[in-house]
Nucleic acid binder design. Structure first.
Length: 109
DNA sequence: ATCGTGACGAACG
DNA sequence: CCGTTCGCCACGA
């Protein structure tokens, strides 16, 4: 059976509580592949065109605490809007989310 | 099987 | 602090 790595990613993303965020790298870590952060991003990219809105993809940001986007500003804009709707706050200057407050990193101390 | 790619991340300089 | 380089690894062609 070809369980796609993608599906595992989606399962984890679904567990992120509303109002919290985590990183691509941490999801990869939870899946036992600490170096597969890029694949996690790749999975979410595929999500957008195949699925609809059942997965809280907006709660996954990069290790810097910022929204990650390569060329699609529109998506990044939407993501920020969705997160602010969940009461998540971005630093006005740096656009960084405070992981001390909003981070979701099960398994870490 | 090989090659290019990417919503990443850590290491450099 | 900032931009660049390099490593990672599943996927699709």
């Amino acid at each position: 059976m070809s369980e796609h790595f993608f599906e595992s990613v989606y399962e984890v993303v679904k567990k992120i509580p509303k109002g919290k965020v985590t990183t691509y790298g941490h999801i990869a870590l939870l899946l036992g592949k600490p170096r597969a952060a890029r694949v996690v991003g790749y999975a979410l990219n595929a999500l957008q065109k195949d699925l609809e809105t059942s997965i809280p993809w907006q709660r996954v940001i990069n290790a810097k605490g910022q929204i990650s986007f390569k060329g699609e500003v529109l998506r990044a804009n939407l993501q920020k809007k969705l997160l602010e709707k969940e009461k998540i706050v971005f630093n006005t200057k740096t656009e960084i989310v405070d992981f001390e407050v909003y981070g979701w990193f099960p398994g870490t101390k």
